[in-house]
Design a protein around this nucleic acid. Structure first.
Length: 508
DNA sequence: GCAGTCACG
DNA sequence: ACGTACGTGACTGCG
């Protein structure tokens, strides 16, 4: 559809997509492409495209194909069409057996043209800002390199984990901690523990942050920007994530920095066209609301229904203090505990990321389960389903298959159990936002509005809103996102608006 | 092409 | 004693 669109052809009436169908029957599986499916379902070995156009640096495009090979290409193209058609029935049948036809017909297939439009529209970037930011980062990186070399006494490749490990733990004899398969771990949490032990440590952490920003975000985005339109066009991948989420690539616009102030500056580069503004719409604590709905956990349902701050309530319970006396730190810790327990993290893991002791962590987890007893029941029944039926599913019937865990070692079994616990929640989140996206884009089209939906970041949608449509768009988006389904708890959406993604401020 | 690291929800 | 929260993608080094 994208290729045809480049030549002004709009494909209507998309009837079936074998890749999407195969994805729903087993979203954890690799090999959903035509060649793999033909082999799996029809036992036919198809010619790989690499046999015709080569691989790597020697790869050619269709336009460079020598004419004497035209017949081979005709065969190749014919096989693609033929096998695609032959796959439809078997995949349809399997969707039906798994009760996935509804999800397929009312969510995944209608989402295709929605994503297509988002990819084609793209997002406007402020190239001048990125170039200026790049200069600042380059200068700072250079200065940090110098400081690091001086502190160590000689030059080396700071980006090489091997060289860095040898210097930190060999040459400088700093206390080494974690190991990887190939040597010392030099990840940020390890380096963090070395603060104050050597002057290069602080420089190194800052160097890491700045080079990450420069290479992945500043240089990466500039390289992928269309120089004529000034926009970047991501790909939204619909058959990658085993939970039912989308993913984004080339560039990945679902991991633009937000957590640190410096990183967050990158969001200034994401702008709206003149006479437009950016509007972001975030589902507030969506996964927890879904958990409350699935488990009917009274304390959770009550808190959400009353519009209370869920993390403050949890903190009050965990620390046994009145709601009014919960500190910021307690609230933050409560939030960490909630997500840790929700996804099955161990006391050890919780202790690692929070800095508390193992016994404190296990005490928190215990109190959490006492406060919200239905959550334990959800975990137990989900694991039971995974073991007896071999799959878990979302409210909308999306399935993820969980292999038999019987004979597995403890660690592998635990990992699969956590995947099973997480999927119905993360997957329901994905189902719901997909439905909202379809409805919103249809409404925008129907009303002939200029506003366009341009990004999805798992529980957030970003729009480029025509100035004169601001109020209409706000109401429409809020109503459709919050009304996407009727749950046991209210669904709340927070809207922000601004001339760029960084400056977006609360509406209303 | 793998491993390590780090960015996001 | 071990290894330790789910789901992604991009960049760099290195063999």
């Amino acid at each position: 559809m994208l290729v045809l669109a480049r030549y002004g052809i709009t494909l209507h009436g998309l009837a079936f997509d074998t890749m999407l169908g195969a994805y729903l029957t087993n979203p954890g599986q690799r090999g959903l492409g035509l060649k793999d499916q033909a082999f799996q379902r029809l036992n036919i070995v198809m010619t790989p495209i690499s046999q015709l156009i080569g691989t790597g640096s020697k790869m050619i495009s269709m336009a460079q194909v020598p004419i004497h090979m035209a017949a081979d290409y005709a065969d190749y193209a014919g096989a693609d069409a033929d096998m695609t058609l032959r796959l439809v029935k078997p995949i349809q049948n399997e969707l039906q057996r798994h009760n996935l036809l509804d999800l397929y017909n009312s969510v995944e297939l209608p989402l295709v043209p929605v994503l297509l439009q988002m990819e084609m529209d793209g997002v406007a970037l402020d190239a001048n800002f990125l170039v200026e930011f790049d200069k600042k980062l380059s200068e700072q990186v250079k200065a940090l390199e110098k400081e690091i070399y001086t502190a160590v006494g000689h030059q080396f490749n700071i980006n090489s984990t091997k060289q860095l490990g040898e210097i930190l733990f060999g040459e400088l004899k700093l206390p080494s901690g974690k190991k990887t398969k190939t040597g010392y771990s030099v990840s940020a949490d390890v380096i963090e523990g070395l603060r104050g032990k050597h002057p290069m440590v602080d420089y190194l952490l800052e160097y890491r942050q700045l080079t990450k920003l420069k290479s992945t975000y500043v240089d990466g985005l500039l390289a992928l920007m269309d120089p004529v339109t000034g926009r970047v066009h991501t790909s939204f991948n619909q058959t990658v994530a085993s939970s039912g989420r989308l993913s984004s690539s080339n560039p990945n616009l679902q991991n633009i920095p937000v957590r640190t102030e410096l990183g967050r500056q990158i969001r200034r580069a994401f702008i709206a066209d003149p006479s437009y503004v950016l509007l972001t719409a975030d589902y507030s604590q969506f996964e927890l609301r879904i958990l409350a709905h699935i488990t009917h956990e009274p304390r959770l349902v009550e808190a959400f229904s009353k519009g209370e701050d869920i993390h403050t309530i949890t903190a009050s319970s965990l620390f046994n203090v009145p709601v009014s006396e919960v500190t910021k730190d307690q609230r933050r810790l409560a939030k960490t505990v909630v997500y840790a327990v929700l996804y099955g993290q161990s006391a050890f893991g919780l202790a690692q990321i929070t800095g508390m002791t193992n016994s404190e962590a296990s005490e928190f987890i215990k109190r959490y389960h006492e406060t919200f007893p239905n959550i334990k029941h959800y975990v137990d029944s989900t694991l039971h389903q995974a073991r007896t039926q071999g799959y878990v599913n979302t409210l909308y019937g999306r399935k993820r298959f969980i292999p038999d865990m019987h004979s597995l070692a403890f660690v592998e079994r635990q990992a699969l159990e956590r995947e099973a616990i997480n999927m119905p929640i993360q997957g329901a989140n994905a189902d719901l936002i997909k439905i909202a996206m379809i409805r919103i884009q249809h409404a925008l089209e129907e009303k002939h509005m200029k506003t366009r939906m341009i990004l999805q970041v798992h529980d957030e949608l970003v729009f480029e809103v025509a100035l004169e449509e601001r109020e209409r768009a706000r109401k429409l988006i809020k109503a459709m996102m919050e009304g996407v389904a009727k749950l046991d708890v209210p669904i709340e959406v927070e809207l922000k608006v601004g001339k760029n993604w960084y400056e977006a401020e609360p509406m209303e």
